[in-house]
Amino acid sequence: MNAASRPVEPGSARAPHGDQRHKAVLEAPDIRRALTRIAHEILERTKGGENVVLLGIQTRGVTLARRLAERLEEVEGRPVPRGSLDATMYRDDLRMKPARALGRTELPPGGIDDRIVVLVDDVLFSGRTVRAALDALNDLGRPRAVQLAVLIDRGHRELPIRADYVGKNLPTSKSETVKVQLAENDDRDVVLLGPKEVAP
């Protein structure tokens, strides 16, 4: 996902509420339903979710992974290992911007060797974040398989990467931004579609 579509500073994540330029494409109940469906699809495709490890990509992917893990546990009645992954050091656009702060990479105690790792992110765009995450996984262990779950697939891929589980396919233009806000990070659950912000 291109950094332009993801707010980096916490302040900019708060899209102005009454702003006509930003349209809410998914509200809280839609997000809830999408995650519930993804949870069931994961269980179906992995035959009960055995051996599954959910790894959220920083920052909002971590929140989504936590919510998915809760749903899997509700259905299957046993804990699902989850963790977080920060792929900043593996990005291919590092040299285009000043070095940025790192997020936390935290693997569950059992590690990821021989597990089915489901990477979780909020928006799938260029695919570059996922590529970086796959490289990071390479240094962390050897999963039996890696799958990808995203809340929004907005198209415009620049690499041969696709998601296994998609909350919503959202046709967009490259001049638009998609912002996912989650209650844990931004006070409310909503997905906003708006014009690309012009740098001040």
């Binding site: 050091m89 997020g103 240094d139 962390l140």
Partner: peptide, 20 residues
């Protein structure tokens, strides 16, 4: 200091290397 805190985990991994 915060960056160092995140990088500290690298030394406990089997592959102690980043491509950065």
């Amino acid at each position: 200091l915060d960056t160092a805190e995140e990088l500290a985990q690298i030394s406990s991994r089997s592959i102690k290397k980043l491509p950065t």
